[in-house]
Amino acid sequence: MNTVTADPVADDVPLIEFCDVTKTYGQGEAAFQALRGVDLRIDVGDFVAVMGPSGSGKSTAMNILGCLDSPSSGAYRFRGVHVERLSRNQRALLRRHYLGFVFQGFNLLARTSALENVELPLLYRGEARAVRHAKAREALAAVGLDRWEKHTPAELSGGQQQRVAIARAIVTHPTLLLADEPTGNLDSQRSHEIMELLVDLNRKRGITVLMVTHEPDMAQYAQRVVHFVDGRVATDRRNEERH
């Protein structure tokens, strides 16, 4: 873990570096290559939107970036550290201290209140009860759910669950926020509010944001848009103007 926590990192080292990353699901006849050699470099403080057709490998790449999955080949360096050389525990600690992840399928704990779901990452960070509650309430308020903290996922709409998932990802103020279609279930009014929130976190707290989206409107909020096609990066451009 020391290699991961070693601070400060030299300024010119990118936060994320993907070198020729591939991911193959299955074996033999049934094998399917979801990523076919992705090169990607993301600097600290960037706000990146990932777009591309369904099945182009966006979620696969996000899972690898989030250290939830490992690439079949290629190298992934996080703050200059080779992630594939880390042990399971080191990767867990990396997730705990640096990453926030919003899953495409929310992945909230069932029968557990919104507040308890949101404070879970803080619990694993060993925060005191009072701090946990204050921060979790703050995060829930930020996504407009301050009145829903006692509700369990089953008692929340899809959009509300998604916002709980976002609150859980931002509650720790992670170095890198990975969000897989964070506005997929939200109306456009809410979507814009969430985007404002992400932009705010990116600007004020220096959180690097990597967000998958299908909506060009949302991609407008990013500083940079990466297009995936068939498991490769097809285009990678900077937005001229930002909202």
């Binding site: 939830l68 399971r88 525990n89 867990a92 201290h97 992840f101 992945n107 704990l109 069932a110 990452p121």
Partner: peptide, 19 residues
């Protein structure tokens, strides 16, 4: 099944295996 997903969630948000 349910608990396996629960464990996946916990691991994903940074729980150690031993925790």
């Amino acid at each position: 099944t349910e608990r396996t997903r629960e464990i996946g969630i916990r691991l994903a948000i940074g729980a150690l295996e031993r925790e």
